[in-house]
Structures are given as structure tokens and as C-alpha cells.
């Protein structure tokens, strides 16, 4: 920021207090994650005789090995894979169908265009949580319980991405389409050669948001994956807790929690700029 040396900054000479407050805030916000990490590196007896240590132990490799390759009901590696397929499927699927329909809405006049537009608009208002019972019945009647299609398809029926792309396509200069038409280019050629390359950043930003959205789904996988082999990691953690009075295997569960947050955290941190942009775009 260019005004960094302005009068306002000079007046705020107590910046160390601000730093202190920020550091305190960051520490408090990080504490649950830190504690989970510590719990994933110590032994079960160390946890069940409180207070648990607050510095990491030496069981890191053992606990993560136990989680990844044995787990409780199913190896966590398998759940990670399922989550990855689901998150990728939702992100790629939603982006693909939205790009196509946004292109059709912006660059064509076809019968039923207005109706389609309004149909899509209505889907903005209904999160999956509201229609779980009937959607579950639809999936069951297609025989899609415990399948990747069942996990993915109902969650890609939403309009946010379509509106976002429509908004962006409207800003593409008309001259480009004009030129393409004069050159005799077919619409799909124009789409592939001009529109797609121009939308790269928007696609990437949206991908980041949708990947996290898909990865963090809980209710839907909980309903339709009755087979532990199909559990996703986020919903699988809860299944690792024993139902009765048995003591939970805390180190393995906490290792799983850490594993469950690593992929979305990596995506957010490594693509922070795109992520922030995608967040601001998709909410407005």
C-alpha cells in the first residue's frame, strides 16, 4: 500500500500492542489444531490420563501408519481416496456443466432460454440439506447408494457457478465474437479458442472453492455411504468413535482429523490469492 507512511500510520505508534493482539488471536485460533496434532503424536495412555501433554510426543510415525493403513473400520488411505474423488468430481463436474450452460445463455437466443434461466435461478435458494429425504430416495431408486456418482451428482446441481461464468462472459468484448463470426468460426471453436483461455483465472478460483466445498461435505456422504469402503474422510471420523462406553482410540482419530484437513489447507494456503478471489466472486 502506497499510503503506508502517511500521517495515520505515524500516529499509531503503539503498533506493538496491535501485534500482540494479533499474535494472541492467531494462537487462540490455532490452539485446537495444535492440540489435535499433539494428540496424534502421543500414546493412548498419555491422553486418557488428563491433562494430556501440550508438546508433541514420539509416536508420530506409528499413529499415522496405524490410521492410514489400518484405521478403525476402514484404512484412512481409502477414505482419503474417496474424498479426493468426490471433491474432484464435484469441482470438475460443476465447472464443466456451468461453463457450457453459461456459454449457451450468453451467446445464443434459443427457445426456453428465459425459462431455463429462472429454473437455474431457483436452485440458488435450496441447499441440499433441505431436500435430503427425497434426494436420498432418488439416489436409492437409481441404485446409486455407495457409489461415486451418488456422492457427486446431487451436489453439482447448483447455479452459483453458472451465474458467475455468465457474469464473466458478459465482460468479454463483443469484437471477439464478431471477429470469430466473420472468420467463419463455429461457436464451439470460439468457445474453446477464446472463451476458455480467457476464463482461466475464474475457473481456477472457482475450482479452489468447489474443491473445499466437496471435500468438506458431511451430511450427504453420511446418508448414502453405508459401506465403510465408500466413506469419505470427513464423515468417517465420526464413525471411528465407539458407540458404547468403550474408550475412543484418540491418537488414531486425531491423526485422521489432521489428515482430513491437510488437503484443503494445502489448497487454501498454496493458492491463497485465487482462493480469496474465488470466495469474493462466488458470494456476490
Amino acid at each position: 500500500m502506497a499510503f503506508g507512511n502517511g500521517i495515520v500510520q505515524k500516529k499509531g505508534s503503539h503498533l506493538w500492542l496491535t501485534h500482540l493482539f494479533m499474535i494472541l488471536g492467531v494462537l487462540i485460533i490455532f490452539f485446537p489444531i495444535w492440540l489435535a496434532f499433539v494428540a496424534s503424536t502421543v500414546t493412548q495412555p498419555e491422553i486418557v490420563s488428563p491433562p494430556m501433554p501440550i508438546l508433541p510426543g514420539d509416536q508420530f510415525i506409528d499413529n499415522y501408519k496405524a490410521a492410514l493403513f489400518a484405521g478403525v473400520n476402514v484404512p484412512v488411505a481409502k477414505m482419503l481416496f474417496n474424498s479426493f474423488v468426490m471433491a474432484m468430481g464435484i469441482a470438475v463436474g460443476k465447472i464443466t456443466i456451468s461453463l457450457l450452460s453459461a456459454f449457451a445463455i450468453v451467446y445464443f437466443r434459443f427457445p426456453g432460454r428465459q425459462v431455463f434461466f429462472w429454473l437455474i435461478f431457483i436452485t440458488l435458494m435450496l441447499p441440499v440439506e433441505v431436500r435430503i429425504v427425497p434426494t436420498f430416495e432418488v439416489i436409492a431408486s437409481f441404485g446409486l447408494l455407495n457409489s461415486y456418482s451418488g456422492l457427486i451428482l446431487p451436489l453439482i446441481a447448483s447455479a452459483t457457478a453458472t451465474f458467475l461464468f455468465r457474469q464473466f462472459f458478459m465482460t468479454i468484448p463483443d469484437e471477439l465474437a464478431e471477429a470469430a463470426r466473420v472468420d467463419g468460426a463455429k461457436p464451439m471453436r470460439f468457445f474453446i479458442d477464446i472463451v476458455l483461455p480467457m476464463s482461466r483465472t475464474n475457473i481456477a478460483a472457482l475450482f479452489v472453492i468447489l474443491f473445499i466445498y466437496g471435500w468438506n461435505q458431511y451430511l450427504w456422504p453420511l446418508l448414502i455411504t453405508t459401506d465403510p469402503e465408500m466413506n469419505t474422510i470427513v464423515m468417517g471420523i465420526k464413525q471411528m468413535f465407539p458407540s458404547g462406553d468403550d474408550v475412543a482410540e484418540w491418537p488414531v482419530i486425531m491423526a485422521t482429523s489432521i489428515l482430513a484437513m491437510i488437503p484443503p489447507v494445502i489448497v487454501v494456503i498454496s493458492m491463497q490469492k485465487l482462493f480469496v478471489r474465488g470466495l469474493m466472486d462466488s458470494e456476490k
Binding site: 492467531v26 494428540a39 468438506n216 458431511y218 471420523i237 465420526k238 482430513a260 484437513m261 491463497q272 482462493f275
Partner: peptide
């Protein structure tokens, strides 16, 4: 540092706080 928790699924956040 502050955007980390956004990436943590609500269900996982639940497990952390419950712990």
C-alpha cells in the same frame, strides 16, 4: 495463518472442539 480454519470441515472442527 488466520485463513486455516476455513479449510477445516465443520465436522472436523466439531471433533477438535469435542476433544
Amino acid at each position: 495463518l488466520l485463513i486455516w480454519p476455513y479449510a477445516v470441515a465443520p465436522a472436523v472442527a466439531g471433533v477438535l472442539w469435542m476433544f
